[in-house]
Computed example of a mutant assay.
Amino acid sequence: MLHWFQNDAFPLYLAPMAGVTDVVFRQICKELGADVMVTEFVSAEGIMQADDRTRKYTEFTDEQRPVGVQLFGADGERMGEAARKVVDWKRPDFIDINFGCPVNKVVSKNGGSSLLKDCPVLESVASGVAKACEGIVPVTAKIRIGWDEQSVNAVEVCKILEGAGMQAISIHGRTRSQGYGGEANWEVIDACARAVSVPVVGNGDIATGEDVEKRRTETAVSGVMIGRAAMQNPWVFRQAKHYLATGEQMAPVPLEERWKLVIRHCRMAAESRRYGTERHAIMAMRARLMAYCKGFPGAKELRQRLCKVESVAEVEGIAESSLATAAGEPIEARA
């Protein structure tokens, strides 16, 4: 068993999200209580072509462990070779295979959730990676519950993945056709967890400590994965752990502390090598900044200003005016 599931531990994963869970954001979430990290998904073909841009997506620090690198592709042999290259470069704690991404540019290449419609290929990919990594690092997989409502096949897929050597399976409780709309189906996630002997990690609509406790007590999952809620409120990991330990909610995070983290995130992004110049880094942060400010006093005006920022100094100025207006009152995070 993966060590982070041992001794009845119930790990909180930060979900891999393209353009979001880069090395900087993972560091922030780790500090705030996330237990397990997974990188943004990486093209196996990009790895095989030694593409420098692709390789950047595999970066992580030792402080972020346990951390997995997530790959997508549809050729088991090539995926296995790519996994071995990643292991040689970085020696992650595990390799994760993306069978869940709903994005067209991934699906159109027969990657991500498209393989939920082709179980023989899905099995060959899982087996190819597992064999390539056997005895070196464990391999896990992430899926959705099915392609659409007419083909919800997650239980079958989980059994296939277990047989192919996956040592844990993460399940987003929506179909590919749902995207991120509607409610996550935790009944299917629970059925999957009861159908296999490897740990199953549930993903979907986890935003509070109460949500985590509900899934821990009412389903057979071995952990949960938090995605979009962390984009707005990375404190969710700390809040969830406090609730699990005490049954009580933490006090709301003060606005001043929220802005302090926002500015720190901007500085870290600007200092990282990933984005090049500070201007490019802050422009890349715009969507993240608008997510952070949901629920802030005057959020609509803040979003209008943040969508145009090009420097850390601009963000600092917006923070100062926001704090002056709100007089530092604490706020609740809102979905």
Rank of each mutant, 00 (worst) to 15 (best):
N110Y: 12
L289Q: 07
Q6M: 10
K30A: 04
R215E: 03
W235K: 12
Q150T: 09
V67W: 00
F99T: 03
K117M: 14
E149P: 05
N7V: 00
S124V: 02
V198P: 02
A281S: 03
S127H: 15
C133G: 04
S124N: 14
R78C: 08
V107T: 12
I160R: 02
Y243V: 06
K131W: 07
N98P: 02
I226L: 08
A281W: 10
F72N: 00
V155H: 01
R258K: 15
R267K: 15
V67T: 15
E162P: 04
V107N: 05
H3L: 03
G204S: 03
D93V: 09
G223Q: 07
D88H: 13
N98F: 00
E329K: 15
A291Q: 14
A324W: 00
R303M: 06
Y180R: 10
R267Q: 14
K214N: 07
V103L: 09
V212L: 04
A44F: 06
L323K: 08
H3F: 14
Q304N: 15
C266R: 04
G182R: 06
M231C: 10
S170D: 09
I160A: 14
P66R: 11
I143K: 06
E59D: 11
A270V: 08
A74P: 02
E187M: 13
I136H: 06
E45M: 02
K90L: 14
E31F: 00
A164G: 00
V155M: 04
T58R: 01
T219E: 03
S322R: 03
T175V: 04
D75G: 01
E271V: 08
D75Y: 09
C293T: 15
S113C: 14
G181H: 03
T140E: 00
K260E: 14
A319N: 10
G80L: 10
A184F: 13
V212F: 01
Q167M: 12
I189T: 02
K30I: 11
T325W: 14
F25Y: 09
E123Y: 02
E149N: 13
C307K: 10
N104C: 04
D22C: 12
Q232F: 10
M17P: 07
L302H: 05
S108Y: 07
A245F: 08
R274S: 14
G112P: 06
V157M: 15
Q167S: 09
A9Q: 13
K105Y: 14
G19M: 07
G227S: 07
F94V: 04
E162R: 01
E310R: 07
A335N: 14
Q239W: 08
E248V: 13
E123W: 03
R238I: 03
Y13M: 05
A44G: 15
N185W: 00
A324H: 12
A207G: 09
D96N: 12
V86G: 03
D62P: 00
A50Y: 13
K214G: 00
C293F: 03
G76S: 08
K109S: 13
I169P: 05
I189S: 00
F72Q: 01
C101N: 07
L71I: 12
W147S: 14
G295Q: 12
I263M: 10
L289A: 09
K294L: 06
V125E: 04
S272C: 01
K159C: 10
D93Q: 04
A82I: 06
G33N: 01
